[in-house]
């Protein structure tokens, strides 16, 4: 059973709202850089940067972080993950880094991404923006900006689909088959 929880307009509005919240909280776009977590976090990061430019008129650098080499669940996941490039062609030292992912779940990917960022420099701070927060944290991590909170159970999966990767913008919750 699939439930659609966000359509294209809702995804767009959520990202627009996050852009406003980022600017409000940081009093403008000064010293902000955005880093998306591969794969879908990258597209949300790029859209966020475009929105911020529209609102504030300032271009924000966007980078990509690949967390494969930082995962703690790599044993079970290695077969699914090919190591891709981290592409952050600017210094993050003393910058306010907005880290972007599609779904916040256990928090383990975010932990890996934070470790990865710290290896690249010493940011002034790191803030977390996610399109969906589905709960069930296993680490003391919370998001600063959330598109939508979706309470889920463990046997559901949240699928974020984005035009750039999936040809369509929507979010669905799927019931996983019981084994």
């Amino acid at each position: 059973m699939n439930t659609r929880v966000m359509n294209a307009d809702e995804v767009n509005r959520a990202i627009t709202r996050i852009a406003h919240e980022v600017l409000e909280k940081n009093r403008g776009a000064h010293d902000i850089v955005i880093v998306g977590i591969r794969t879908r976090g990258v597209f949300i990061a790029e859209r966020l940067a475009i929105k911020i430019k529209e609102i504030e008129g300032e271009a924000i650098p966007v980078g990509i972080i690949d967390i494969t080499l930082y995962r703690d669940d790599i044993k079970s996941d290695i077969s699914k993950h090919i190591v891709k490039k981290t592409e952050i062609p600017f210094s993050i030292t003393d910058k306010k880094v907005i880290l972007v992912d599609d779904v916040l779940y256990t928090g383990r990917s975010i932990r890996a991404a934070i470790d990865g960022l710290i290896d690249l420099g010493r940011p002034a701070n790191i803030q977390l923006a996610v399109l969906i927060d589905r709960g069930h944290r296993e680490l003391p991590i919370r998001a600063d900006f959330v598109g939508k909170n979706i309470p889920t159970s463990h046997n559901e999966s949240v699928k974020v689909m984005l035009k750039e990767e999936d040809g369509v913008d929507k979010v669905v919750v799927e019931e996983l088959d019981d084994k």
Binding site: D66, L69, Y70, L120
Partner: peptide, 23 residues
């Protein structure tokens, strides 16, 4: 090709100030 593509990702690590990942 898998080895060459993976190596491309690895090459970036050698250009960092901190040339180490915990993999």
């Amino acid at each position: 090709l898998l080895i060459l593509d993976t190596a491309e990702s690895m090459k970036e690590i050698s250009s960092r100030d901190i040339k180490k990942v915990p993999a």
